Amino acid sequence: MKAAEWIDRLKDARGWESDYRAAKELGLSRNTISNYRSGTRTLDDETAVKVAEALEVEPEIIILDQHAERTNSEPARAALAGLLQRISGKAPGGGSAAVGRKGQVDITSAASATFAGGDPARNTHRISGSYRLP
């Protein structure tokens, strides 16, 4: 999702009508919001966390989404999109994931559905347990 779309969601959720208000509330300049609108910038990690807290969603979701937006590598973008799907509870193969408010991610079922035993030739590994994303 584009940074401007996250800002629009935030504005809708908070009832803010202007980008100026969003910039003020997030501690950003109006120029930064303008750069989000033009697509020349993505949310940095700190701003992504602020937006996530205001929207009451897990910060990992917005951080990963914005990292996927800014990468120039299609394989990296696909990997980030896959991870984002798994931690947001939309794991392929019927798996699920749970993300706690304090950033704890349980991806046991998502990982085993996706990686089932691992394949060294494809550089995949079986993952289980709870993990905290950096």
Results as ranks from 00 to 15, higher is better:
residue 6 W to G: 01
residue 6 W to D: 03
residue 6 W to H: 09
residue 8 D to S: 12
residue 10 L to S: 03
residue 10 L to Q: 01
residue 11 K to D: 04
residue 11 K to S: 02
residue 12 D to I: 02
residue 14 R to M: 10
residue 14 R to F: 00
residue 14 R to I: 04
residue 16 W to E: 05
residue 18 S to W: 02
residue 19 D to Y: 05
residue 20 Y to R: 15
residue 21 R to N: 12
residue 21 R to H: 06
residue 25 E to Q: 01
residue 27 G to L: 13
residue 27 G to D: 15
residue 27 G to H: 12
residue 28 L to P: 00
residue 29 S to N: 11
residue 30 R to D: 00
residue 30 R to I: 00
residue 31 N to R: 02
residue 32 T to A: 10
residue 33 I to Y: 02
residue 35 N to D: 13
residue 37 R to F: 06
residue 38 S to M: 06
residue 39 G to Y: 01
residue 40 T to R: 07
residue 41 R to K: 13
residue 41 R to N: 06
residue 48 A to F: 14
residue 48 A to D: 13
residue 50 K to Q: 09
residue 51 V to P: 00
residue 51 V to Y: 07
residue 52 A to I: 10
residue 53 E to W: 11
residue 57 V to K: 10
residue 61 I to F: 10
residue 62 I to G: 11
residue 63 I to Y: 07
residue 64 L to N: 08
residue 64 L to H: 03
residue 66 Q to D: 05
residue 66 Q to A: 12
residue 66 Q to C: 08
residue 69 E to L: 02
residue 71 T to L: 09
residue 72 N to P: 07
residue 72 N to G: 11
residue 73 S to E: 04
residue 73 S to T: 10
residue 73 S to A: 11
residue 75 P to C: 14
residue 78 A to F: 03
residue 79 A to C: 13
residue 79 A to E: 15
residue 81 A to F: 03
residue 81 A to Q: 12
residue 82 G to F: 07
residue 84 L to R: 08
residue 85 Q to P: 06
residue 88 S to Y: 01
residue 88 S to P: 04
residue 89 G to E: 09
residue 90 K to F: 02
residue 91 A to Y: 05
residue 92 P to W: 01
residue 93 G to S: 08
residue 95 G to C: 14
residue 95 G to A: 15
residue 97 A to C: 09
residue 97 A to Y: 10
residue 98 A to T: 15
residue 98 A to V: 09
residue 99 V to G: 12
residue 99 V to M: 06
residue 100 G to L: 05
residue 100 G to S: 14
residue 103 G to Y: 04
residue 104 Q to P: 00
residue 105 V to G: 13
residue 109 S to F: 12
residue 110 A to V: 14
residue 112 S to I: 15
residue 112 S to T: 14
residue 112 S to R: 13
residue 113 A to E: 11
